[in-house]
Design a protein around this nucleic acid. Structure first.
Lengths: 190, 190
DNA sequence: GAACAATGATAACAGTGTCAACATAAGAGT
DNA sequence: ACTCTTATGTTGACACTGTTATCATTGTTC
């Protein structure tokens, strides 16, 4: 009975193992067969819990998106608004990306395949909306609505692009440089 | 003899077919077998011209990188330096990305796998160096060296991040919005 | 023309995602 | 307690992929 026929909670176990790989490896092997093998289970068993591989990846990406969102919301609450507030939130984003490269990549890979403008508000779309709200929260109040939207997009683009360039190895990760680059954005004179 | 045993220039034909797919499809199928099939040739024939699939993708990415570099250099020369110059170059970058989504993705996917700090200056690393130089060329002269580096990284991150967000469908492509967002960066007060 | 290098084709191997069919366990209802 | 149903897991197979080893054909060079 050291190998019961039923696993107990294979879905959770699969997600946990996937998460561990995403956390510990830069280019994790998230193949269905590889995962199932290390879970001590047949490959097709996973199909009882996920309709296909993409669904599994989506679940992992959603979990990652929630973690990122919480991380950003936390930073936003701690830092407060204004120029310095945005800087802290932006640096938090880049730092999280550097610490979770595979997970961030998975998030954007998956979210790119999803129709965010769909009538059905996916869990994924919902989580992304919250992330955007967290970024927008640090924008100065005295702006017009359009300016706030542009400023939020500017901020998001900046930190996301910086994170991506670092993850892709184009730029060495240097916390002081990140701070400097993020601080170059000043919304006060807009 | 309507199907000669030797193709003539299979390498060039494969690259051209790959490029056409990268230009015409958002998620092109660049599998070796699929390419070979449509080229009317066996899958393994490609191994006479590329050591493996990654090498083929690298060649495509290099060509794309050269196109992007030329595009940027052209824009930089036309626009001149300074604040407006950067804006034009940045907008050019985003526009090119929107027009060549699969190619831009391939470039960054491939370049992420390459060791840019290698002793052997790869053709790919060389092309990327030129791209960076094109961006840095629009930075104001009156900055210190460190500030110029930070400003160039800021600019690159901004346009790259904005392009990625658009490509991933997080943000609808709106030329006016792009211009507004890029123009929010003002290096004069740094 | 013979030898050689370049380029192609075939067959096979290991790997993948996925489906159909079957097997086992757990739970519900009588 | 004994079914019947549902949930879950396994086996075998199919079509696909990148890759290699082996063999076939062509072009080139001495």
């Amino acid at each position: 009975m050291n190998a019961p026929y039923h696993h107990g909670d294979l879905r959770a176990a699969a997600l946990q193992m996937g998460m561990e790989r995403l956390e510990s490896q830069e280019q994790p092997d998230l193949g269905l067969r590889a995962l199932a093998r290390d879970l001590g289970v047949s490959a097709t068993a996973l199909y009882r819990h996920f309709p296909n591989k993409d669904a599994l990846l989506d679940a992992l990406a959603l979990e990652g998106l929630n973690r990122l969102g919480r991380n950003q919301a936390e930073a936003a609450a701690k830092a407060g608004g204004g120029h310095d507030g945005f800087a802290e939130v932006g640096i938090t984003y880049v730092t999280w990306a550097v610490e979770n490269p595979a997970l961030l990549r998975l998030i954007y890979n998956r979210v790119g395949q999803v129709d965010l403008a769909a009538d059905d508000p996916t869990a994924m779309g919902e989580a992304f909306f919250q992330l955007r709200a967290g970024i927008a929260a640090t924008m100065p109040d005295e702006m017009s609505k359009d300016q706030r939207a542009a400023a939020a997009l500017h901020a998001w683009s900046l930190v996301h692009g910086l994170a991506m360039l670092i993850l892709d190895g184009q730029v060495a990760y240097d916390p002081a440089m990140v701070r400097k680059v993020v601080l170059m954005t000043d919304f006060r004179d807009c």
